[in-house]
């Protein structure tokens, strides 16, 4: 009973002080109406990628946002130079520099088999449309994987979407698996070169053959083979 009384009194006191302060303000300050600055509402997304392969490190990923009609690659079509550079040598600089890309972030390093990495993308609400992600399977001639234009507009906060992705073949370099032709640790060979000596259209990668399965010039081993899917992705809007 007593306690309640005191509480009541305290809050009454606070109310009185607040009222006094407010009316004091109103008396002394002339309020000039200012134009309301446009409120830029930001949305933040996390994209978590996991390398599902046995022994194919993935080059540092690039995560990019762009308009809904843009696609980084199209199965059956010729790969762009930016995709060729990424698929043959892991270099994503040209992808990030594409005119259609509104914003991009890079992975911190190689995404090793079994490992996961979470990337964060913060966009003005008006710019939220589609995202793409690309990374090379480095113990191959020109295998890559990633997200190809997925719409993230209208996602509710804390409602993750999970997807799996397959390995594509850029079709820009023959899958010789030969010594000196692949940049990954299994070979330590060449990355990008300008020659296009394969079918020259993007398709689903037919897989690594390896020296143990009849490709005598191959420096790849059975553990470098892979099957789909090769990448797990979780997209979540966090705010």
């Amino acid at each position: 009973m007593k306690t309640t009384d005191i509480k009541l009194k305290t809050s009454l006191l606070a109310l009185v002080i607040a009222t006094t302060l407010l009316s004091g303000c109103g008396d002394d300050v002339v309020v000039v109406p200012e134009p309301t600055p446009p409120v830029v509402v930001m949305q933040t997304f996390t994209v978590t990628v996991t390398n599902l392969t046995a022994n194919q490190p993935m080059s540092p990923v690039v995560l990019a946002s762009h308009s809904a009609d843009a696609m980084l690659w199209q199965a059956g079509e010729t790969a762009s130079l930016a995709i060729e550079k990424m698929a043959e040598g892991g270099d994503t600089a040209d992808i990030a520099a594409l005119e259609v890309i509104t914003s991009s972030v890079n992975g911190t390093g190689m995404l090793m088999p079994g490992m996961s990495e979470t990337l964060t993308l913060t966009l003005a609400e008006a710019d939220v449309a589609n995202i793409s992600l690309a990374t090379m399977l480095v113990n191959t001639n020109d295998a890559f994987t990633g997200i190809n234009s997925v719409n993230i507009a209208g996602m509710a906060v804390d409602m993750p979407t999970m997807m799996h992705y397959m390995a594509y073949d850029a079709g820009t370099e023959a899958n010789t698996e030969a010594k000196g032709s692949m940049p990954g640790p299994a070979d330590g060979g060449e990355g990008f070169n300008t020659a296009r000596d394969d079918v020259d259209f993007v398709h689903i990668h037919p897989g690594v053959i390896s020296q143990y399965d009849g490709l005598t010039d191959s420096v790849l081993m059975p553990s470098h083979r892979f099957d789909n899917p090769v990448l797990a992705v979780t997209i979540m809007r966090t705010e």
Partner: peptide, 13 residues
């Protein structure tokens, strides 16, 4: 030819 005729799924979109 193992270099030409192999595939992994999916094979059609």
């Amino acid at each position: 030819d193992s270099r030409i005729h192999r595939w992994l799924n999916p094979v059609a979109k």
